[in-house]
């Protein structure tokens, strides 16, 4: 890894603004962890099948029936800003 790890790219993808101090500290810690996980490269993993569920459960599908949703007031009760029943955010187009 390491030489390719660009904290600015990653924090941008993760949508988290970081101060310069934070960047330095996190970069150092992440380096330690990424070096540790290098050990995995020594494991032979050819032909290994992947199951999402640790017990290999197969997905069960839900019958298409509508049920009661959240009351509008409950849906909006945590909204930082509300207008006419909408959630309001600063403009999402630049």
């Amino acid at each position: 890894m390491s030489e390719n790890f660009n904290i600015d790219d990653v924090s941008n993808l993760a949508s988290i603004e970081l101060s310069e101090d934070e960047k330095a500290k996190l970069q150092k810690d992440l380096q330690i962890i990424l070096e540790h996980v290098e050990a995995l490269k020594n494991v032979d993993i050819k032909d290994e099948k992947i199951d999402i569920h640790p017990l290999s459960k197969v997905l069960e599908l839900r019958k298409d029936e509508s049920k009661e949703s959240l009351k509008h007031e409950d849906a909006m009760m945590n909204s930082p800003e509300t207008k006419d029943g909408h959630f309001v955010v600063p403009p999402s187009i630049e």
């Binding site: 949508s15 988290i16 970081l18 955010v89 600063p90 403009p91 999402s92």
Partner: peptide
């Protein structure tokens, strides 16, 4: 001033 900035800062 924009949604993206708001999300970035809030998460920060």
């Amino acid at each position: 001033s924009t949604s993206y900035e708001m999300m970035n800062k809030t998460r920060s």
